[in-house]
């Protein structure tokens, strides 16, 4: 199980970083989303992995619980990352609509090169 989670985090990170190194804004957003997954799972996993032990207190018997703290942190992180993604999407969209170019580099190339198909 640990191997699966760790390798998934690694693969998501690698894919995300590869995509944010692309030159257009949309792949960068995709890459950011993948990195977000990776980071959230990473944080969550730092509480160690347990199955069938949700941190819902059982009033009637003593049972084991998984670590609740990383869960609380990741829960807000998920919501905040939605806000972040939305802002980045908005910036990318605004930039594309204003310049008709979705390149992420500053020095604009000659007109027309960035027109979409």
């Amino acid at each position: 199980m640990e191997l699966l989670v760790a390798s998934a985090v690694g693969i998501l990170t690698a894919a995300g970083i590869y995509l944010i190194l692309r030159r257009r804004s949309f792949p960068v957003i995709l890459g950011l989303s993948l990195i977000t997954y990776a980071v959230n799972v990473f944080l969550f996993a730092s509480g160690r992995l347990m199955t069938a032990a949700p941190p819902i207190l059982n009033k009637y018997e003593e049972v084991a619980y998984t670590d609740p703290l990383p869960q609380a942190l990741v829960l807000t992180a998920i919501v905040i990352s939605f806000g972040m993604t939305a802002v980045v999407v908005m910036i990318a969209l605004g930039a594309f609509l204003s310049s008709r170019d979705d390149r992420t580099a500053l020095p604009a190339e000659p007109e027309g090169a960035g027109e979409d198909a």
């Binding site: 998501l12 590869y18 996993a45 730092s46």
Partner: peptide, 28 residues
């Protein structure tokens, strides 16, 4: 870019794997 990404991915994956295979160093 692929090389950078793969190295970083290996790092992130390795780090969490190392973490997962060990108990907490301090009481949480």
């Amino acid at each position: 870019d692929g090389a950078i990404a793969v190295v970083a991915g290996l790092g992130a994956g390795g780090l969490i794997y190392a973490l997962l295979m060990r108990d907490f160093a301090f009481p949480t």
